[in-house]
Design a protein around this nucleic acid. Structure first.
Lengths: 189, 189
DNA sequence: AGTGCCATGTAAGGAGTTACATGATTCG
DNA sequence: CGAATCATGTAACTCCTTACATGGCACT
């Protein structure tokens, strides 16, 4: 629902047409999450259908501006007033991956962790490099959010590795691997 | 793509049918992200279409087990070997919301931040309460991931508030009150 | 004349959610 | 018997992405 409300928020600053909305959105968030232009139009259509937005007659240059409605303002105010619950956030693919890696036969969990850490460290470095450059406040806060998250991810990966060494004997194949294969049955459903 | 690969990983432990897959998935991740049963079946259909999985003849009790194919094993190994890039993660709705709140007229950013912080702190407390209870390793790591992320979010919110007081004069139109209120105390998590 | 950007859309499909329909089995 | 749970599916819909089609306008 972030795009839907994001467009509403942009329209609260005044009338805008589709192409403008995309530019504005990407300007705010520093093009961190590029917004497909196609989605802007389909979302605008849905917003209009739901009465949150009103499409205006086509301008000279072929531009079709939209304006927010009273109902749209109410909806927007509600969005800003309501905290984002952790329950309705998307699944964390990395957490799922590592959790499953633990019980999947033939997967070297340690190497999964370390591969991910290298990648995350690289992106973290790119983020910190970006920080020095420019700086509109909104975009800087978004960037900081990414940095904080990446740092947390690194800490978590370290934490995982520390937990692992206590449970997984070693990276090297255990000689009792043959007997360990009897554990191949699926447990309780 | 997390469900697709998640199901593949579970099937690597042996044949399973749809209902079992959902239980197993939720057991691993502690029901943090409940998995809709309908999606399991549609995903299995797509996986079979793509040759990553093979549907077996119906069992006596009406259960239709699936098994992973060689191609599926390759795909799964690739998933585990490839780090998850920050680029193709879903948009962070909270970051977008705050970034837009800054430039949206009539929005009290400070209160948005504080509302969110209260909510995040509550869920963090729930998480830490959960930690004491049980403990399969995979689920515990998932929980730790959630905790680390929530803590990072709290730090970021504090950071946002600190940045705000320097740029937004104050909620009240009196400039002298703002400078007095600048050192708004928030001890970090 | 051609390249490239501005601007609006549509089509096709993946992923996910909610809801519904349908049976079998199990338990009080 | 009735209710709950197990088990498989389908339908409708939102959100999002990728790709395609189309036209205007500006610059070289």
């Amino acid at each position: 629902m972030s795009i839907r409300h994001g467009l509403l928020a942009l329209l609260e600053r005044g009338q805008m047409y589709g192409y403008q909305l995309r530019s504005a959105f990407e300007a705010e968030t520093g093009a961190t999450w590029p917004l497909n232009i196609g989605q802007v139009y389909t979302t605008l259509t849905r917003l209009e259908r739901d009465g949150l937005v009103r499409g205006l007659p086509e301008h000279d240059g072929g531009q079709r501006p939209y304006e927010i409605t009273a109902e749209g303002r109410t909806e927007l105010a509600l969005w800003f007033a309501t905290p984002i619950a952790h329950a309705d956030r998307p699944r964390d693919e990395l957490a799922i991956k590592l959790a499953l890696a633990l019980t999947t036969p033939g997967v070297d969990v340690q190497s999964v962790v370390q591969t991910q850490r290298s990648a995350t460290m690289r992106t973290l470095q790119q983020y910190t490099r970006l920080k020095k450059d420019d700086g509109e406040l909104p975009w800087r806060l978004v960037l900081d959010s990414l940095i904080f998250q990446a740092e947390a991810e690194l800490r978590w990966l370290d934490h995982c590795e520390a937990s692992l060494v206590r449970f997984v004997p070693s990276t090297s194949p255990v000689p009792t691997a043959a007997s360990a294969e009897e554990e191949n049955v699926h447990e309780r459903a």
